[in-house]
Design a protein around this nucleic acid. Sequence first.
DNA 1: GGAGCGAAGTGGTCTGATAAATATTCCTGG
DNA 2: CCAGGAATATTTATCAGACCACTTCGCTCC
Lengths: 248, 248
Amino acid sequence: MDESLPEAATAAPAAAPSPAPPKGTVTQRAIDQIKAMIGEGRLEPGARLPTERDLASQLGISRSSMREAIRALTVLGVLEARHGSGIYVTQLEAGDLLETFGVVADLSRGPRLVELLEVRRILESTATALAAARITADQLAEVEKHLTAMNATDDPEEILSHDLAFHRVIAGAAGNETMAAILDGLSSRTFRARVWRGYQEEGAFERTRREHAAIHRALVAHDPEAARAAAAAHVGEVEEWLRAQLQP
Amino acid sequence: MDESLPEAATAAPAAAPSPAPPKGTVTQRAIDQIKAMIGEGRLEPGARLPTERDLASQLGISRSSMREAIRALTVLGVLEARHGSGIYVTQLEAGDLLETFGVVADLSRGPRLVELLEVRRILESTATALAAARITADQLAEVEKHLTAMNATDDPEEILSHDLAFHRVIAGAAGNETMAAILDGLSSRTFRARVWRGYQEEGAFERTRREHAAIHRALVAHDPEAARAAAAAHVGEVEEWLRAQLQP
DNA sequence: GGAGCGAAGTGGTCTGATAAATATTCCTGG
DNA sequence: CCAGGAATATTTATCAGACCACTTCGCTCC
């Protein structure tokens, strides 16, 4: 019967500064609080966090919930847990935080693949244009290395690998690490493997080779506009092919 | 002694297709396996997963570890847990998966903020150009609504809110949901609030107003090139200001 | 047939314990 | 005094079991 009154005696002992904003789950709150600590600068990149137990008691939650929060921030690339050592804030660099971008590419299908390629075309053409203006001799040599290696083999795996590296070096030469990291995610292995499985079976090898050569020529000539056009055409070819595939 | 030969007796009862690839933590493995299930189409968008308990025993791990895996995929926007109901795969649309993009903007500092603005400038200018060609009368009306509302108040909070909506409608009119979702992340509330705190104190209100008007004119005229230029200049202004701030 | 209720199912949280990897301390021998 | 290594302490990784909160659905009763 009537044994329990909703409110009453349970005056929480530790309701100090934060009047316990009861939004969402405790785990979500923990995630937000840790993010806030980093955002406000209370935790520098590379800093070591208190132990799981300390953090848990500090926020008034159980260790299980705290572990879920930590795990979530780990997959986001914000934290890094080292077994036996502790939990650390990553360097919060573009590569750390944008690694999850690959998940988007891996799980997207149908029309969204075309949209992703459109984004890649826009960013890649601009990045290649910037690279044409800024690329150094060393970087250019590396581009050539992957270009020749790509043309010297017939193994699709190896071609794909050098193709990815080819574009990665170019993106790096553009001087915008964030853009390079995004492009890396948009070119993730499984994403390209999926699209190219069919594309390369239509004799696209030769065309791809010519397009890469055009990009390389533009880089050598330090001609941003030619580089932009060549890169846009390169991605656009795949984009158009994929668009056609979706309307049988 | 010599009691242990590497292989031998422990013929696991359920070591059927996957010979237990012992890479990383069990939780990470669980994350990968669930991702694989979705990637291979064994789990459609919107589908309901087995219960935590079933999934855990199915993969041979404890419920705690399985919960961490689920939580991780939840913050990535891949899964959605409904208390008392079950765990479901999201629709895997751009908005779901790219929500995490906001944390990049929120946690970035210094030079990376400039890089993010550069990416935004590239995408936003292209999106605005596309919108100029494709925008409908209804969408144009909504753009105007936010434009006038923005100019009718002095409350920074309200201005920021309508500013975000202004660009969001334009991005939506460009017809690429993925690009719109990325731009949304690049314009997340806390990100812009941080940058604009200083920017708007330098009498940038009037300039911002003129830039928005220019974008709007280009949209009305359905002039992609003008729209591209206006949008690029708009973001570029903030970008340049921020770049200058970093070299005192 | 419909409204209300209650039991079963399911995610959310907590507690406690053990294993594994790492960090620290301290002892020993030169 | 110092170098090396073993014992010890710290910390994350994982597991197990319990209880609570919310949802769902079937059942009863009107």
